[in-house]
Amino acid sequence: MTQGPRRLPAAADRVGPRSAKTVTVSLDGGTVTGLAGQTIAGVLLGSGVLSWRRTSTTGAPRGVFCGIGVCFDCIITVNGDRDVRACQRRAADGDVLTSQHDLLPARRPAGYNSAGDQ
């Protein structure tokens, strides 16, 4: 089965959005292309990228969930600014996107950490 999200080609779209300029962004060093006016999530999903963040505790992948700025699952670092909701921010040409995998501070033994005692 062909899998995953994609942007509709304008020619095949009954709603027929007027063609737009492309925007090119980088994601962790790779290049992703979308259309001007798309959100970062729209650009990534439209290019078949389904997830771009890993959770802190389990390392599970995450992408868009709520799609309307509520769940913060889709956060990504944009030009050095952390925690930007990809579903809310419009992509700008040249945006440097960095996926986030924020690890927790080093785990401690059950109950307490006496590292400061040393």
């Binding site: 899998q3 995953g4 999200p5 994609r6 942007r7 509709l8 304008a10 779209d13 709603v15 959005p17 798309q38 959100t39 999530a41 729209g42 999903l45 439209g46 389904l50 997830s51 992948p61 995450r62 992408g63 868009v64 969930f65 709520c66 799609g67 309307i68 769940c71 579903c87």
Partner: peptide
Amino acid sequence: PGVFSGGAAQALAKGERVAVG
């Protein structure tokens, strides 16, 4: 990934013309 809220599917369709799958 691939589980979306209904609102996400609508937003992506209306605002992006992106198919979720």
